[in-house]
Design a protein around this nucleic acid. Sequence first.
DNA 1: CGTACCTTTGACGGCTGTCAAAGGAAGTGG
DNA 2: CCACTTCCTTTGACAGCCGTCAAAGGTACG
Lengths: 253, 253
Amino acid sequence: MGSVTGLQAAMGRYIGLEAFERRLLDRLEHRPVKVARDQVLWSPEDRVTNLFSLQSGWACTFRDTCEGECQIIELLLPGDIIGLREFTFRRHASQARMITPGSLCGFAHEVIADLVLASPSLAIALFAAIARQEALLTERMLVTLHRPARVQVCHFVIETFLRLNKVQAVDPGQMPFPLSQQLLAQILGQSTVHINRTLMALDRDGLLKKHRGYITIHDMRRLYQEAEFDDGYLSDRLDGLEERLAKLRMASR
Amino acid sequence: MGSVTGLQAAMGRYIGLEAFERRLLDRLEHRPVKVARDQVLWSPEDRVTNLFSLQSGWACTFRDTCEGECQIIELLLPGDIIGLREFTFRRHASQARMITPGSLCGFAHEVIADLVLASPSLAIALFAAIARQEALLTERMLVTLHRPARVQVCHFVIETFLRLNKVQAVDPGQMPFPLSQQLLAQILGQSTVHINRTLMALDRDGLLKKHRGYITIHDMRRLYQEAEFDDGYLSDRLDGLEERLAKLRMASR
DNA sequence: CGTACCTTTGACGGCTGTCAAAGGAAGTGG
DNA sequence: CCACTTCCTTTGACAGCCGTCAAAGGTACG
C-alpha cells in the first residue's frame, strides 16, 4: 500500500488508477529514503538521471542568477514529483534542494518511458502533473510582474494553503510554513528587506502573521480580496481526456 | 508529405520518427487553415477542445490582468504547438490570438490520448515539447525579475533569433520581427514607454535597431554579452530517454 | 554560552510606471 | 489621389515601489 503522499496519490489526483497501475507505482517507491534539511538532489550541469517522489518535507528547485542572487523556480510539497520540468533534458540547469528534512523516492528518468509504454493513462496523468506545475509558475510570474509585494505575499500564502490542503487538512490558524523570509523573498523575486516590511504590514493590518515554522491566517476573506485570488489554475479535473482513454483502452482489447 | 513547419518537424526535433508515426501526424494536419491577424483561437473560460499546429505566422497566448493590463505568456512561432499548456485543463485561463496572418491545423485535445496510445515515442516527444515551452517561460521569468529592461530586450531578441533559426535560416540583418513596441512590452511585462526608451538606447549604442516588421542586429557578440545569454535551455537533445524507448519497443515485439 | 542564522529598522537611490501630448506611418474610403 | 482614421512611436515631467547598504536585536542550536 502506498503512502498518502506517494506517487499513487500524485497520479490518482487526475485519473482513476487500475490495479496494475498501482502495482507499477508501488514498485517505484518501495523504499523511501530520509533526507536532511539542505540536502542537494542535483546541481546545475549534472546529467539528468533521476526523478523524485516527495513523500514528506518541503523542497525547491532554483537558479543562481548573477552576483549571488538566487531565484526559486518551484516549491515542492509532499505528494509532488521533483524533476518533471527537466527529465527530458540532458543536463540540469537548476539546483534542487530540500528546504526541510523529509523523505523521498528516487527513480531513473528512463522509467518514465516504461510508464508511458505500460499505461497511456499514466502518461496523461503525467501531462496533467507537468501542466499543473507550469500553471503555478505562470501565476507566480503574472503576480510578480504586475502586482506589488503585498499582493504577492497574500497570493502565495493562499496558494500554498490550498496546495497543502489537497494533501491533508490544514488549520488556517496553524498553517505549516517552514520558510524563512529570505526563502520567501527568493520565491517572489524580491529583496529580503522588502518582504520583511510587507510581512510587518500584513500583521499590523490583521491579515496574517508569520511565525517560525507556521503562519496564522487571521482573516481568510480579506486575504482572498487583497490577493485577487482565482483558484482555477489549481484544479485537478481532467474531463474528456480520461473518457477518451477509457474508450481507447476498451477498443484495444 | 508534411510541411517544413508541421507537426512532423515539431516532434521530429526530439526523436526519430517511424513511418507509422509520420502517417499519424500527417493525418492530423492534412488541411491547414488560413487565419487573419488578430484571429482569436480561444478565450478565457472557453471549454478546452482543440490544440493547434502553427504552420506559418506568429501567435501568442496571454492573460488580462486587472485594469486593462495584459501579459503575454507564450510567443508561438511557426512549428510550435499551441495549447500544450492547457490541454489537460477543463477550461482555458488564457486567450490565444494570432499576431500576424498565418495558417494552422486544429485537432481535438483527445487526439493526444490517441497519439500516446499509438506511440510512446510521440508521448515522450510531447513531454519534451512541453518542457521546452516551460523552459522559455522560466528564462523569461528569471530575466524579467532580476535584470533591467535593457538586458531583457537583448535576451528576448537573441532567444527569438535562435528559435526562428531552428525552423529556417535567419539573416541577423533582417530578422523577422512583427511585434509592435506595445506587444514587446506585454511580453516582458513592462510599460510601452519604457520599452521605447530602451530600444532607442540600444539603437544609439549600435546594438540593434527595430524597424517595422524586422530587426537589424548590428553587433551579435555584444548583444550576447549584454544579454548574459546562455542557450542551454533551447537544446532539443533528449539523450537516454529515446534509447530506452527503442529498447522497450524492441522488447515488446 | 557562543556562534550562526533570522528578523527588524533607517536612509538613500534608481529603475520603471503613469500621465500627457505630439508627430509619424499605414490603411481606408471617398 | 487625397482626406481621415487608427495605430505606432517618441518625448518630458513626476512619483513610487523596491533594491542596496548598514547595523542592531532576537532566536535556535551546538
